[in-house]
Design a protein around this nucleic acid. Structure first.
Length: 329
DNA sequence: AACCCGGGGAG
DNA sequence: CTCCCAGGGTT
């Protein structure tokens, strides 16, 4: 705690105990580096300053403010949870761990973070940093990819968690994990708990934490049709399954008599954490406005143009594709 | 308990 | 290339 008082990172959400702000911050930062999420957080709370404005917003706009962050179910769940607070909690942000946990998209970690930071509940917020710092301090080779890891390290954390300032304690562990006890090349020389760290004593800090599960990316091919009439083209909204939940993309099928209007194809290779994508985009240029509108109406596609498409959230590779198309023309 | 879900930066 | 990030939901 002494180290934290002197070395805490200066971050936008460190100066508030507003549970709405802390909640948004915690969701943004799930599996996301602080530097990557900081601006999204600031933009988000500026546009949606309290629960009500988020609850009453259109899903498309919530997704727009989430554009590029990934794990889009977080945005969908955030929107749902805001409405949940309006209906189930009378618009007042819940102030106990068990109630916060009921919010869609809020798991044990996030509920613990909000409860400890905003409401001073003594509950460890076990995130990736906590796993790493604890497993090194105790030289503990408990597999953090095990489904029992959370409960195991939760109990371990209680052994060293003070009664005072639980929120600051949780954030102190995060800062040590992020700035000192890093996954690679930890900076043990300046670590405030070095003398109490068993792994450091043994000299094998790099061996912790133990993580057995390794996920391999799978290959996936997608075929899109960029169907154009003059400056306009067709888009659709994805469903909430599979990848890129609720984001917008292009039609994936065309009637066979459209094939003669294919002018060229472009292949994009895009790497995701769990997938290696090969995306083929066929350019279909129609000279017949009636065909264009008929096809659009029959399949419930949306007619848009480059400027208008900025009001929708597209997957990263498709956004890059549109940008290049526009710059070339 | 296993599996799925993005995008980005570091090494 | 691999690993990991202020995890959670679904099956």
């Amino acid at each position: 705690m002494k180290w934290y008082d002197l070395n805490a990172r200066e971050l936008p959400w460190r100066s508030t105990k507003n549970p709405y702000h802390i909640w948004i911050c915690e969701i943004v930062l799930q599996q996301t580096r602080v530097e990557q999420g900081k601006n999204h957080y600031l933009n988000f709370i500026e546009r949606f300053p309290e629960v009500k404005s988020l609850a009453y917003a259109h899903t498309d706009e919530v997704l727009l403010y989430w554009k590029g962050l990934g794990y889009y179910s977080r945005a969908i769940n955030l929107h749902t949870a805001a409405q949940q607070i309006m209906t189930d909690f009378n618009g007042i942000f819940p102030n106990h761990f068990e109630e916060i946990l009921k919010l869609k998209g809020v798991g044990k970690y996030t509920a613990a973070a909000v409860a400890s930071i905003c409401f001073d509940e003594k509950i460890p917020a076990i995130d990736g940093n906590f796993y790493r710092v604890l497993s090194r301090i105790f030289a503990d080779d408990f597999d953090i990819s095990s489904s029992k890891a959370y409960q195991y390290f939760y109990n371990l954390a209680l052994l060293i968690m003070p009664d005072e300032r639980p929120g600051d304690f949780n954030q102190a562990i995060m800062d040590i994990g992020s700035e000192v006890c890093k996954p690679k090349n930890p900076n043990c020389e300046v670590c405030p708990v070095r003398d109490n760290c068993l792994a450091f004593g043994i000299g094998n800090v790099q061996d912790f934490p133990l993580k057995s599960k390794k996920v391999k990316a799978q290959d996936l091919k997608l075929h899109y049709y960029h169907i154009r009439y003059r400056e306009e083209f067709l888009i659709k909204q994805r469903d909430d399954s599979f990848i890129w939940k609720k984001l917008y993309d292009f039609p994936e099928k065309i009637p066979s008599h459209f094939e003669k209007w294919i002018t060229h194809e472009k292949t994009i290779h895009h790497k995701l954490t769990h997938k290696n994508l090969e995306i083929v985009i066929s350019e279909v240029v129609l000279d017949n406005k009636k065909e264009f509108q008929k096809f659009s109406e029959e399949n419930h596609f949306i007619i848009t143009n480059y400027e208008e498409s900025h009001l929708k959230s597209f997957p990263k590779p498709l956004e890059n594709f549109l940008k290049k198309e526009f710059e070339e023309s």
